[in-house]
Simulated assay, not measured.
Amino acid sequence: MPREAEPSLNERQFVLQALQDSIRLDGRELDQYRPLELTFGDQYGVADVTLGKTRVLAKASAELTVPYADRPLDGIFNIATELSPMTSPAFEVNRPTETEVLISRLLEKTVRRSGALDTESLCLVAGQKCWSIRVDVHVLSHDGNLIDAACFAVVAALRHFRKPDTSMEGGVLTVYTPAEREPVPLSWLHSPFCVTWSFFGEEGDIALLDATWMEEQVRSGSCTISLNKHGEICQIAKLGGVPVEAVSLLQCTNVALIKAKDMSSKLDKWLAEDAKRRDKGGLLAELSAENDRVPDI
């Protein structure tokens, strides 16, 4: 299996020495994210997220299927990740790496197991018909912090997605096309976001947010905190590395809450802008036209 080129000894020492002086190579503060951008596709459920030079594309889709036998009243929700050789020479097709497995598990715990999506609303006929929602995550460019970017892309794609409307009459299930009925959004309960901290030094006394690829290569450990804007923690993943004091972890959690609120407000703004753009000439335009015709009193 090909390996990615590792930083040289001089590069490692330079990065670590700069971090000890609270200096990052790109000039950011230790708790500052790179610019976050989101672009929606022409179809519902396509989210293109850019975090610095890291770029992730998520696409949500739905199909009718049979629910699991042990959960006849729930729909199905899956997340699939793909890291292609286009992202990095270290990744190969159909050969999941440790990074890909880690991202899949963290996204699974953050979004699916936290109950962000109401799977009961996906059930159409108990034990017979349900919606299967699938989100495909494609990493297009890797410059560090794939987990946070991928989580934001998944949440954005699911909140933007619209599934076909259905009706049940006389035991007959009817699925309407977008031309017949307007597609309906998913039943969304809360929006969890991942905030990943990286620790440096032998004792992990230096902590920073949104590490670049170079910073990830020299860090001593990492911790991913998944939470929503209400401060409800979905998971804390500390997978090896140097131990972190409880007080430091609490401080990281407090900062993560601020970042999660910021991500949530940005996503709400981008969703509102996209809805307004898609409704151009639609219902909103009709209402505004009617208001324009009302004479001033």
Score class of each variant (00 low, 15 high):
Lys109Val: 13
Ile79Asn: 00
Leu64Gln: 09
Gly240Tyr: 08
Phe200Gly: 06
Asp262Gln: 11
Phe161Leu: 07
Gly52Gln: 06
His190Arg: 14
Leu250Ala: 09
Leu124Trp: 04
Ser187Met: 06
Asn228His: 05
Asn10Gln: 10
Pro185Asp: 14
Ala179Ile: 08
Ser167His: 10
Gln217Tyr: 02
Thr65Val: 04
Trp188Leu: 14
Thr119Leu: 13
Glu202Lys: 13
Asp279Pro: 10
Pro192Leu: 02
Gln17Met: 01
Pro2Phe: 05
Met1Ile: 10
Val175Ser: 12
Cys223Gly: 10
Val155Arg: 02
Gln43Pro: 00
Cys194Met: 09
His160Gly: 09
Asp21Pro: 04
Ala289Pro: 00
Trp270Glu: 15
Ala153Glu: 10
Ile258Gly: 07
Arg71Trp: 10
Cys130Ser: 08
Pro35Lys: 03
Thr177Ala: 15
Pro192Ala: 03
Ser22Tyr: 11
Val101Phe: 02
Ser8Met: 07
Ile133Arg: 01
Val242Lys: 10
Gln32Trp: 07
Pro89Asp: 07
Val175Tyr: 11
Gly115Val: 08
Ser61Arg: 04
Thr174Met: 10
Glu202Asn: 11
Val66Thr: 15
Thr212Asn: 09
Cys194Phe: 00
Phe14Ala: 05
Glu4Gln: 09
Ala260His: 02
Arg278Ala: 01
Met86Lys: 02
Leu146Ala: 02
Ser265Phe: 01
Gly170Ala: 05
Glu180Pro: 06
Ser84Pro: 02
Asp165Arg: 15
Leu227Ala: 01
Phe91Thr: 00
Asp148Gln: 03
Asp42Trp: 01
Asn291Ser: 14
Val184Ser: 11
Leu83Gly: 05
Asn10Pro: 00
Thr87Gln: 03
Thr166Cys: 14
Asp74Val: 02
Gly171Ile: 03
Glu29Phe: 04
Met168Trp: 03
Glu215Asp: 12
Val247Asp: 07
Ser220His: 04
Cys194Glu: 01
Leu284Ala: 13
Thr177Gly: 12
Ile258Cys: 07
Ser222Arg: 14
Val195Tyr: 07
Leu73His: 11
Met168Lys: 06
Val49Asp: 04
Leu249Tyr: 05
Gly144Pro: 06
Arg28Lys: 12
Gln217Lys: 14
Asp296His: 12
Tyr33Thr: 07
Asn78Leu: 08
Ala126Leu: 08
Gly171Arg: 03
Arg277Trp: 06
Asn10Glu: 15
Leu146Pro: 00
Arg34Phe: 08
Lys109Leu: 10
Leu158Trp: 05
Ser88Ala: 15
Pro295Thr: 01
Glu180Trp: 13
Lys129Arg: 15
Trp197Asp: 09
Glu290Val: 04
Leu106Glu: 12
Leu51Met: 08
Arg3Tyr: 12
Met263Leu: 14
Gly75Asp: 09
Glu37Met: 02
Glu98Pro: 00
